[in-house]
């Protein structure tokens, strides 16, 4: 069928062999969702690529705020991050974040972990906000609208929409369907739906039809760019 004049082609998933090419959409001041819980599901190659790509003044939404010197910690250390939205910044090896936070060089928005996940889910699902019992009566609900529903206190939480999501999955097929491995799935499916552009790094890409449709976790509609780690130059992931 020939499209009517003015109707552009349907967007397809783009496959890349390098992080640099996969990350070309990222701009200064973007809000970026970064998958992973600790190192499980952390898109390490994409984060390294983001450091090389050089955008600044970023808002990073992730469960943690970096460990040791790699990944998010390296991005923070490079001075690219203005604000971190996360649930659990303080860890035994989160010294890069700790120092930046204490010296006022990075802003922190602390969000309970389930609320963080649900705020992103809401964004991806077109929900304008939701009332949750989590955090009611605590410091983290200060300044927020509350409501009593069936005798229980709830806090209004708003969606977290982002410009870009960087996630890791196990395999992608050629239409961007994704499967994950074990607890590395964590924030991946939620973040994939919550960003304008979703960039995924995968261990391998398989032909369309090779993934069992019953087992696909993230349908390709949420995926824009795929970095095939098996095709990219192997980077030192240490």
């Amino acid at each position: 069928m020939t499209p009517s004049p003015g109707v552009s082609a349907v967007r397809h998933v783009e496959f890349h062999g390098s992080a640099e090419a996969a990350l070309s959409v990222v701009r200064d001041s973007d809000t970026i969702l970064v998958g992973g819980f600790g190192m499980a599901g952390m898109p390490v190659t994409l984060i390294d690529g983001l450091i090389d790509a050089g955008p600044r003044d970023l808002t990073i939404v992730s469960n943690n705020a970096g460990n040791g010197e790699a990944g998010l910690a390296a991005l923070l250390k490079a001075g690219r991050v203005r604000k971190v939205v996360c649930s659990f910044p303080r860890q035994h090896d989160s010294y890069v974040f700790d120092e930046l936070y204490r010296s006022g060089q990075v802003e922190l928005e602390l969000v309970p972990q389930g609320t963080l996940a649900e705020r992103m889910r809401a964004a991806g699902a077109g929900i304008g906000g939701f009332f949750t019992p989590t955090g009611f009566g605590t410091l983290l609900a200060e300044g927020k609208e509350t409501r009593t529903i069936d005798g229980r206190g709830y806090v209004l939480e708003l969606p977290i929409r982002a410009d870009v999501a960087l996630i890791a999955a196990h395999r992608a097929d050629r239409v961007g369907n994704l499967v994950y491995r074990k607890t590395a799935r964590n924030f991946g499916p939620v973040m994939a739906a919550a960003a304008s552009t979703t960039i995924v790094e995968v261990a391998s890409v398989v032909e369309t039809g090779a993934l069992d449709p019953e087992n696909i976790v993230t349908p390709g509609i949420y995926v824009d760019h795929v970095l095939d780690r098996s095709a990219s130059t192997k980077k030192n992931r240490a």
Partner: peptide, 16 residues
């Protein structure tokens, strides 16, 4: 004042 708050899933478990 100098502590870095971290909440994780504690509030969700407490209510849930």
């Amino acid at each position: 004042p100098d502590s870095i708050p971290a909440v994780g899933g504690a509030m969700d478990l407490a209510v849930g």
